[in-house]
């Protein structure tokens, strides 16, 4: 089974991918907490990642979160990525955005 390695500023971790599932759902099933879980439908942008290496298929995702230029640079939403090989990815920090959204509560 292919494996994904997630690097962040703090640590590197890896988990195994399921054939049927998107990268995000594989991550959820592996109890991995590194990739934030949002709508799982390519709409909200919470699970934004950068794919550093590996082969994958991708489904349509919101252009509000992944522009065509970003897609060419390897940016993607993990919920729309179906890996074909081992992947190396990093999390694109969306924490600042979430803090802004919670300013009033």
């Amino acid at each position: 089974m292919p494996k994904v390695t997630v690097s962040s500023a703090l640590q590197e971790q890896s988990f195994e991918l399921n054939d049927e599932d998107s990268l995000l759902v594989s991550s959820e099933k592996a109890m991995n907490k590194a990739i934030p879980v949002g709508c799982r439908g390519g709409g909200c942008g919470l699970c934004k990642i950068k794919i550093l290496s590996g082969e994958y298929l991708s489904n349509r995702m919101s252009k509000a979160h992944i522009t065509e230029r970003e897609a060419l640079q390897g940016y993607a939403l993990a919920c729309r990525i179906y890996p074909l090989s081992d992947l190396k990815i990093e999390i694109v920090e969306t924490i600042d955005k979430r803090k802004k959204l919670t300013r009033s509560v």
């Binding site: 709409g43 969306t94 979430r98 919670t102």
Partner: peptide
Amino acid sequence: VLNERFLSVLT
């Protein structure tokens, strides 16, 4: 308690 998604997951 709120789940984080209530505040941050929007389209």
